[in-house]
Design a protein around this nucleic acid. Structure first.
Lengths: 193, 193, 193, 193
DNA sequence: CATGAATGAGGTTTCATTCAT
DNA sequence: AATGAATGAAACCTCATTCAT
């Protein structure tokens, strides 16, 4: 149980990045928060960038894990889709600080982070695209629709974070789902809630 | 033709910020690109931040101007809404580098930029909310819908920028409109195209 | 009457140096105050340093002129001494802004100014030394006494300047004279007032 | 012996400021003299100003400590006065470089330094005023006299510094004392030597 | 493993000075 | 003579990273 040190530092980094953003945050701040020396930081991370990327990966992993679990054993594409999005939103709600760091603070901080983040979004979108095509949409509409959906959710989550969670995130996410669902005439939406 | 120097520097800044992001960009790079000395930069801008904010304001002004013009003389709410969004997307398409700088690079770079950018997005959303309510939607759905719409468009624009404009932006934006339109049963969409 | 421009700039420089000190003052400030362009400044002065030194020289000249005039036609050494010091104090009182620039602001600003200022003080002291020796003091005591006297007066003037002239400078100077006079047993002081 | 680094840097700063003055001195120079990197300087001082002020405080503390010690257990006002001034002069003689930095270089360098230095001089003068009044002088004469005395000593010290200590500082100070002493008829001066 | 003092490259910003007009 | 936009050297300061203990 000695491997906890790295997690402690990651937690501290999350907290500091969330408060100050990537560039305003210093290794010193993170070390102080983690109650260790700055040198100790470098025993676990190659660099500041490396540490930030670890947080991005952490969020990505959490989201993907939850999505996988939510889809397990489900056959119906519409149901898989609904559960996937619900799972993602749940992760953001639970790990909202981490979500803030990655989605809000990491955005323009560094071209590398951007690259990584877009890859995450693309991966997420591809999931949706596949489900939508299984639901009968043609590819073009599925692709645009998936991106739009991801963007809409990201915006909602961003507002929720910025307003200090003063917004019914689950409610809002449901409303977004309803919009897309209805738009595509997959009208048995209510029955699947 | 004498006030050109400031515009030259703004253009250079746009280019450099777009390539490197706010923090990686240096005054030296901008000055080199503008073919002037670093000191010259400070004849026109108080600071690096000031210069970046000028770009944000520029995009904001362009967007608002185009929207205002697009709405002039139109009474029908649905039509106003459609034209507003179309105008915004047109601005992004025309000034795509500027859009990239403001929407993508400026995000996590500085708390001040974030603040400014969210204010822009909120202002934009409020426009949509008003139009939607005129179209008969109740307030709650209009608010969520407006944010979702803005997010969806931002995502599409972001992808378009990232893929070096290799995407039919206008087509995609129309598809997004169709989605929201249909979702709310404002079905005479095609007639207004 | 065209040579007035240089004097205008000198006056402006005096005012700006007096307010901000040598290093905080900028050529721009001086030019603004003199209502001319920064380039014009360099038509009359080789450099910022040159301009400051011109002010030092100005004070030096004023003081020396007044002293020479005060001593003209006087034979009695004690009287010459008294009038010399009185004349110097009068110059400081009249040109207090200039005195402030040279005595207060110029002090630690630049090793070169220091050098120049000390030369002024030494020149002034030598005057006093000569008079004191004529009054019968031996050289050693005259030298120390002269320096002490100059220092005492400079301190009084400095306080007077710092307190915005809220001090009876002439009174104080007289009291200083009385001290030195009495100390050396040149007791016919009162008769010479 | 671990706290030595800060003292090393202070010593280096003293030396550099003493040679070049506050503004001509650079952090790089100080760091080079202290044989450390520029960043190391900032581990011990918040800023260049902070470092300079530390030197001012150091001199102030030394002077006050020595004065306090010199006055301890003495009742006679004349004796206290004589010993106080002697102690001050001794400090200057011992820490002449520090005295040069604070008294000469710090003068016009920065409004803050000026403020601080004048406060020191005023504090010193008040000491003298009190002693003089105990000796029987009325307040007005005591105040002027104290300032004159401080100024006279400062001038003597300044000359001594400028001439590379080629002057019998103690002798000269004694002569200055004698002047003031005699002037006020406190004639048993020699008995207290 | 842990420490934290030390490093030094590099960035922003200022401002005295120049020169084409 | 006068202008003022342009220059660019140089300074202060930060902070990610290292390494001797």
């Amino acid at each position: 149980m000695e491997g906890g040190r790295k997690e402690e530092i990651l937690k501290a980094a999350q907290s500091v990045f969330s408060h100050y953003g990537y560039h305003q945050a210093t290794i010193r701040m993170i070390a102080d928060q983690a109650q260790c020396a700055t040198g100790t930081f470098y025993l676990y991370f190659v660099s500041k960038q490396d540490c930030f990327l670890a947080l991005v990966e952490e969020l990505y992993t959490h989201v993907m894990e939850e999505i996988m679990q939510a889809r397990a054993g489900i056959d119906d594409a519409a149901e898989k889709l609904k559960r996937s999005l619900g799972a993602a939103v749940d992760v953001f709600r639970r790990d909202y600080e981490l979500a803030q760091v990655v989605l809000v603070r990491g955005a323009g901080a560094d071209p590398l982070f951007e690259e990584r983040m877009w890859r995450v979004r693309e991966a997420f979108s591809e999931f949706i695209v596949n489900d939508l095509m299984e639901c009968g949409l043609d590819q073009d509409r599925a692709i645009i629709g998936a991106h739009a959906w991801v963007g809409a959710l990201a915006e909602i989550v961003g507002i929720w974070i910025r307003r200090d969670q003063d917004l019914e995130l689950t409610e809002a996410a449901l409303e977004v789902h309803r919009i897309f669902w209805t738009a595509w005439g997959l009208d048995d939406f209510h029955s699947t809630v």
